[in-house]
Design a protein around this nucleic acid. Structure first.
Lengths: 150, 150
DNA sequence: TTTATATATTTAACATCGCAAATATTATCT
DNA sequence: AGATAATATTTGCGATGTTAAATATATAAA
């Protein structure tokens, strides 16, 4: 019996070395390193990049859909979209039918950012696939999806 | 060929639906929900909880070791330790041999926080294991570890 | 020993996170 | 129609993330 178990009366939490939240953060930190490096000379942040990617992939959409797809909280996204507006990479306008909704769209300048980084981004994705393995990477994404059931 | 491939000249990034960084964030968000809920009545944040857990598990240690284990950047940790000091949950003192180093330790009050939440924290961990499955959870942690090779 | 270099931590500045409250608009009920 | 509830987004605030610069101490070189 370890000292920890004594202190905890025979019960103990999983070691922080096998903690799911910490493992997720640590992995993300490693994945984001090269991506941040890629973006550093564009003056674009990781979150701004995600918004541009989602807008390019799914087209113009309201703020809630965008936040869900880019995995951002609405308050954060509001501010990020504001800076993207100032940079001229997106547009924003009220929906005609429901004026509560704001439709966000990518601009040509925004598309250019993605195009400029396309090769580099693909190289990063390829490297991840090399290191982790195609099959294991697919397993990983499947398991991570299951967390939505929580 | 999709529209995206046309725009990108036949090359395309992986869909954001299968993006590793986004999948990691999304999973983490789900995992942290119950943990934040657990901590909300203690006035303790997720990061403060991680620091207390690491100090309890590995004992007193210098700031760099603590940051590595709790998966925090040093500037963030400095501030978090300061608030934990004010709350009386940790102590901090310069190392005798190398006065550049700061040794951080958990206090009895800090241990009490962990003890108070122990049952609840174990229940959350158990629920994750139930939903994901013991074997798959172990696989997940193994794959996530591999990201350190990046 | 003095200077230069390396290491450990903190501070500063700005962006984002996460929660709660405020605002604006639409839908529903009476 | 008018009041009420529901929905979509924004704002405010305190805490954290991220990078660069500053500070303090230790080590190495001249």
């Amino acid at each position: 019996m370890t000292d920890d178990m004594d202190k905890m009366g025979g019960r103990a939490l999983p070691s922080t070395k096998r903690s799911v939240p910490i493992a997720l953060i640590r992995a993300r930190e490693k994945v984001m390193g090269p991506i941040r490096e890629m973006l550093s000379d564009s003056g674009i942040t990781e979150q701004q990049w995600r918004i541009l990617r989602v807008l390019e992939e799914f087209g113009p959409q309201d703020a809630s859909s965008l936040a869900e797809r880019a995995c951002l909280l609405l308050p954060s996204q509001t501010r990020i979209v504001q800076t993207l507006l100032e940079k001229g990479f997106v547009t924003r306008q009220a929906d005609e039918k429901d004026r509560r909704k704001q439709t966000v769209a990518i601009t040509e300048a925004g598309r250019k950012i993605i195009l400029d980084k396309l090769d580099e981004a693909q190289a990063i994705a390829a490297r991840i696939e090399d290191v982790i393995g195609k099959k294991r990477l697919s397993e990983l994404l499947d398991i991570l999806d299951d967390f939505q059931k929580l």
